[in-house]
């Protein structure tokens, strides 16, 4: 697992803000993660390392535009890498109901992809996220526009187009694709007395330089019950289906999902269990018969959050890779995590 440091810009403030007179805010988010073998066949690295360190800057540029820059430090193959994560200019002041960003950013689709990894409610990356988007999520350069539709209920439409030279985490320039990566995200909100839900629908298309075509369709659902400082209950889930067709090849369809219910206690402790599932729907053997296969994981996670600026977690990941044509792989990993934020912290989105 790579070391990823994502910096989020945050303003918050019953705390001292890292801010100067130009409105510049800075923050550093550190994500320390340990993985240790839970069974003899485990793939765990038996190491405790800083997974990522994100340094983020945010400021109004002038009366119309805001600018964001985030730089992340990772450890990959034993070497420390510092790379640009996000660098974009945007505005929410030009047209009522509309905001946009232009530059390099995490694509605004799904749920996890819209948040930096240190803000996720669990330690490891869900299988479906890892397979379809890469561990850290999709970063690319382009234009993304979001519009709050003028309706009596909440409906936010995001449309984006990015270069598409690369997909996921890459350290090279990639190749010019047949068409830019383009995507859509539709978000709504359902409010009840006891609980609120935010459902979302995402679609993404990519026609790569090698002629392969990929289509992703997904749904995300987040539910919350908050009681003052305590997030009493959290439900977070995503379901994705991917269609991948190589040039001169057959279409491969995969479906994956994760669901994470979590309960929060008054003391700041929280307990959740993540369920992961992924299957290649179109997997066939040499005779053309369908081959049953699945990757699953159950990840009970115990956390402690003394404030919004630090999180301590411990989890046990039980993964299984099963297929009719191969032996089952059993991978069990004991996970630890400590995250902390120095400097300004942003207001939280739902």
């Amino acid at each position: 697992m790579g070391l990823c440091l994502s910096v989020g810009f945050f303003f918050s403030a019953h705390q001292v803000q890292a801010q100067d007179r130009t409105g510049m805010k800075t923050s550093v988010a550190v994500d320390l993660v340990g993985e240790f073998a839970g069974n003899p066949d485990s793939e765990a690295v038996d190491q405790f390392v800083p997974r990522s360190i994100d340094l983020m800057f945010y400021a109004p540029i002038d009366h119309l535009f805001d600018g964001t820059l985030s730089v992340a430090a990772h450890q990959e193959d034993g070497a420390a890498l510092v790379e640009l994560h996000e660098s974009y200019v945007g505005s929410d002041k030009l047209i009522p109901g509309l905001k946009f960003r232009l530059g390099q950013f995490f694509l605004g689709i799904g749920r996890l992809n819209r948040f930096h990894q240190h803000e996720w409610p669990f330690i490891s990356t869900p299988i479906v996220q890892s397979r379809f988007f890469d561990d850290e999520g999709l970063i690319d350069s382009g234009l993304e526009v979001s519009y709050l539709l003028p309706l009596p209920f909440y409906l936010d439409l995001t449309l984006g187009a990015t270069n598409g030279f690369v997909y996921g985490h890459a350290h090279d320039a990639g190749e010019k694709p047949k068409a830019p990566t383009h995507y859509l995200h539709l978000l709504s909100f359902l409010e009840f007395d006891a609980i609120d839900f935010q459902p979302g629908l995402s679609m993404l298309n990519r026609n790569a330089a090698d002629g392969s075509k990929m289509k992703l369709v997904g749904m995300d659902l987040t539910g919350k019950i908050r009681s003052g400082k305590v997030l009493r209950f959290l439900w977070q889930s995503e379901v994705w289906q991917r269609s991948f067709t190589p040039l001169d090849g057959k279409e491969e369809i995969s479906t994956g999902a994760y669901a994470f219910p979590q309960y929060g206690f008054d003391s700041g402790a929280e307990f959740g269990i993540r369920f992961d599932y992924l299957t290649v729907n179109t997997k066939k053997d040499a005779t053309g018969s369908k081959v049953g296969n699945s990757e699953t994981a159950i990840v009970p996670t115990l956390g402690y959050r003394p404030s919004e600026f630090s999180t301590w977690r411990m989890a046990y990941r039980i993964e299984k890779i099963e297929s009719d044509d191969t032996d089952t792989i059993d991978n069990q990993v004991l996970e630890f995590q400590a995250t902390y934020i120095l400097g300004a912290h942003p207001a939280h989105d739902f």
Partner: peptide, 15 residues
């Protein structure tokens, strides 16, 4: 309201 109002304002997009 620092922990939540900035997020509301960003989402509202009402200059």
């Amino acid at each position: 309201e620092i922990g939540w109002l900035p997020s509301i304002l960003r989402g509202a997009r009402n200059a």
